[in-house]
Design a protein around this nucleic acid. Structure first.
Lengths: 249, 249
DNA sequence: CGACGCATTGATTGGATTCAACTAAGGTGG
DNA sequence: CCACCTTAGTTGAATCCAATCAATGCGTCG
């Protein structure tokens, strides 16, 4: 079951053939544990492996000269950290474990070989890259043109939906390990103002958030206030999404 | 000379072999003119061609329900509009011509065929995609964590360097067709405040900007105030950048 | 010339930051 | 088992950066 989220995610695009999945699993054996708050990959690194989050949450971030931090993406189980660093040389940003993370290591060469041979897999990975880029665009919009209230709401909508697609949400409730500091660094706000904003979202009975669990009380209304349009996540062409056709160890 | 900027850009990565370039040019024959302020591609489109800017400036943007606009990228000669829409289905954002633009149309299939046969070209295009993503990350940082003054300065630094790499800058001076409205939509500010910010940049004698021309008077100091670190554009591994090895019509 | 697009400047308002104090929850060790 | 410490969350008051509202300047083009 270790790789359930990864498989579920890749299945979202093109229905992978059993052989695709099986082959993928054979090369993703090596797993590393990273404690919370430590870098999984640091800026300037030249990773030899491709890293995939199989468990826990992580964040892409950049530091500024004045010491402030901007998070530019959250990574949840099934997300790839650095699918393409090979081409770019070194990392231009860091990836930090928000919670304790388990990360699968895949030797780049093996992945390249696999992508060359298994078309479905190659397509799925290219799709994942493009969706990452699309999410990034929506973050620019979010930070650039929405109020703090809408901004936080939008981020929650995104994470709610993404967690759903990897099967980690039930009854609109899911693990939500982000502290207000982290949320602030992701939305371009301060922790204090994030606090007040969350308070308002709770008062409006849109969410319930405590002890690391988030419940979306009213998905429709939360999406309304956020101006959330899920099309940017490009999930529509999803095939019926049956249970994975191979038994996952 | 029409495609000089495109070639220069692709040459930046891996030095393309003459055959790569020649092949590329044979499939990029069809050119479309788009007047300023019109969409080159609109949200929801399913383009059958890949579009490349050969002349003029364009902008990727998203509209919000309340009518405000956020620009998420600028496209200058040599930039691809939609290298990968094929995979995602429809466009999740629009691309508008900021000035009158000439756009080369390439049939997607032909480009795919070319990438399969010419490795250098395929690498160059993948690199371009990754750099676009990296720029997007830096925009999130810019809008999320910098003051208006630093923010505009940073954008100017980016455009200055990008225009340089496609050979459109001389003596730190180049065509700069962005109105204050457009700049505002790109930086997440209002036009009024953009005006005051530009005024300050002029007063500090960092730039000179009028009638569509921008001169960077002090590159070093402008980069300092902006906190500009060019590494995110991934230009370092550039080969010596000789004149293109084929004669371009 | 008049109209329109773009740039400029002033006055006022307001959303978010900053600074600071305090509470709540959890973990550790004497 | 409770005292102590740390981390995360909460609240208030003052301040400030940028938005808003409004008026004016200026150049271009039909």
């Amino acid at each position: 079951m270790l790789y359930r989220s990864v498989i579920t995610k890749l299945e979202t695009v093109a229905s992978l053939r059993p052989t695709d999945v099986a082959e993928f699993l054979t090369i993703a054996k090596n797993v590393r544990q990273v404690p919370a708050k430590l870098d999984i990959i640091s800026e300037g690194n030249r990773p030899e492996h491709v890293h995939v989050i199989v468990d826990g949450w992580a964040a892409r971030y950049k530091m500024l000269p004045n010491g402030s931090r901007q998070i530019v993406a959250f990574l949840i189980p099934g997300d790839f950290c650095d699918l393409h660093v090979g081409l770019l040389g070194k990392m231009d940003h860091g990836i930090v474990a928000v919670t304790r993370c388990r990360v699968a290591l895949i030797v780049s060469n093996e992945l390249d070989r696999l992508m060359a041979n298994y078309n479905g897999l190659a397509r799925a990975l290219r799709w994942a890259t493009l969706v990452d880029e699309s999410i990034l665009r929506s973050w620019v919009v979010n930070i650039g043109r929405r109020t703090a209230y809408q901004r936080v709401a939008h981020l929650l909508c995104e994470l709610h939906l993404r967690m759903t697609t990897v099967g980690l949400v039930s009854a609109d409730r899911f693990d939500f390990p982000l502290t207000q500091d982290v949320l602030a660094d992701a939305t371009g706000m301060t922790a204090v103002h994030t606090n007040r904003t969350l308070k308002k979202l709770r008062q409006e009975e849109l969410i319930e958030l405590h002890s690391g669990k988030l419940t979306v009380l009213d998905v429709v209304r939360l999406r309304e206030v956020a101006g959330f349009d899920p099309s940017y996540l490009h999930l529509e062409q999803r095939s019926a999404l049956p249970e994975p056709t191979v038994t996952v160890r």
